[in-house]
């Protein structure tokens, strides 16, 4: 086997290796991850976050706009503080937006649903928009199955 043939084969080997990487990057993985690139950070406080995890998606109408970056407990109020990075492409959510913890399907992963609010007419629209470091006031905690059942039983017994 002469050298030239070996060189060509090795070149081909490296090329198909790169092709495999490209295939994995483009068709298998999601590289258009929303949190690559410019982001801004928002916070939300919850009584109960249920099964929410770091890296869970933040969705608006089903479209992923950001990801949870950190979950911690506020030592004073004992509320869970969720920080999330929202893609810089999606700006201008009003301050009155609602943040709720939802579940994908019956047994699926939990994610944050962001429901855009409205802008009060007549006031300065700039001051009503969420920017880096703001906290969303209106939050709905996760549904916990035990609490649901408890409420159901309570309402049943009060009807009697």
């Amino acid at each position: 086997m002469n050298n030239r043939k070996i060189e060509i084969l090795v070149g081909g080997f490296i090329c198909i290796g790169l092709a495999a990487l490209l295939f994995l990057a483009l068709s298998v993985a999601n590289t258009s991850s929303v949190t690559n690139g410019e982001t801004y950070r928002l916070y939300g406080k919850f009584d109960n976050i249920g099964g929410l995890k770091v890296r869970s998606p933040v969705k608006v109408g089903g479209v992923v706009v950001g990801r949870v970056t950190d979950i911690s407990l506020d030592q004073e109020s004992y509320l869970a503080v969720v920080s999330m990075d929202i893609s810089g492409r999606y700006k201008g959510f009003p301050e009155s937006s609602t943040l709720s913890i939802l579940t994908a399907g019956l047994l699926g992963e939990q994610y944050l649903g962001l429901e855009p609010g409205f802008i009060m007419p007549g006031e300065d629209p700039e001051s009503q928009i969420l920017t880096d470091g703001d906290t969303i006031q209106d939050t709905k905690s996760a549904l916990v199955l035990e609490e649901l059942i408890g409420q159901f039983l309570f309402s049943q017994s009060s009807e009697d």
Partner: peptide
């Protein structure tokens, strides 16, 4: 098959960590 896969697989976390 492909879209659910793309949603679940992260390039950095899964592909690069494998490498």
């Amino acid at each position: 098959f492909w879209s659910v896969m793309q949603a679940a697989v992260d390039f950095q976390d899964d592909v690069l960590n494998g490498v």
